[in-house]
Design a protein around this nucleic acid. Structure first.
Lengths: 115, 115
DNA sequence: CCGTATCCCAGATGATACTG
DNA sequence: CAGTATCATCTGGGATACGG
């Protein structure tokens, strides 16, 4: 798979596998969120980087952006159907990582001691 | 999930979501491979980066490294059971990305034209 | 064949301040 | 509230050459 270096699949994968994109999509999986909720759910992300990633995700048709023309404005982000499918896969990967991280750390310690 | 910035899950996820780790694990899913086979299956990777990633994966107990003491030496990499579980999730994500990349690119073009 | 050792860089990320 | 602007940083990754 991905036998060319810049085929569409590889390009998209590089974005999905970026530091934050997967985590953002995952946060939106249970339901829509506003900008600051999203920010608070992702400790360590800066507003700039969150905004960048959201723009990319909207551009790629994975996330919807809705603006309520109130004062002050309210902006809500939600997954598109396409984004929802992606989120399911990301969720599978992340829950596994979350569940097995301790095993991996144990293996790492074992390895470090042995060497 | 991952409510601390440097909890084990986030750390492991950052590695798994690195540019190459997922692709390497995926290549090993069908069966063991030698170093150069792996390199050839991953267009664009340098030997240095491949070696780095493999060392990390071995350290984390996700990949096995077996050396035949022949001359010249033959080194074979394979997934551990733990690595196999991870590969399944990565496979789910990557096949989806591969299958839907065209849709995403189409959405992107639509978006770029609209703006 | 299977790597390691150097050196280097772009691009992703971060901190801070500011605006409609 | 929801961002942008600006500048600084940092590290994963790349090129090249060499070694067991």
């Amino acid at each position: 798979m991905f036998h060319s270096e810049d085929c569409p699949g590889r390009v998209l994968y590089r974005h999905v596998a970026s530091r934050w994109a997967g985590l953002i999509v995952l946060q939106l999986w249970p339901g829509p969120l506003r900008f600051h909720r999203l920010r608070d759910a992702l400790p360590g992300i800066s507003e700039k980087v969150l905004a960048q990633n959201l723009r990319e995700l909207v551009r790629d048709g994975l996330v919807d952006r809705e603006v309520e023309p109130t004062r002050p404005p309210q902006v809500t982000y939600s997954l598109t159907p396409l984004g929802g499918e992606l989120a399911a896969r990301v969720h599978g990967l992340l829950t596994w990582v979350g569940d097995h991280a301790p095993e991996v750390l144990a293996a790492r310690e074992r390895h470090d001691r042995a060497s």
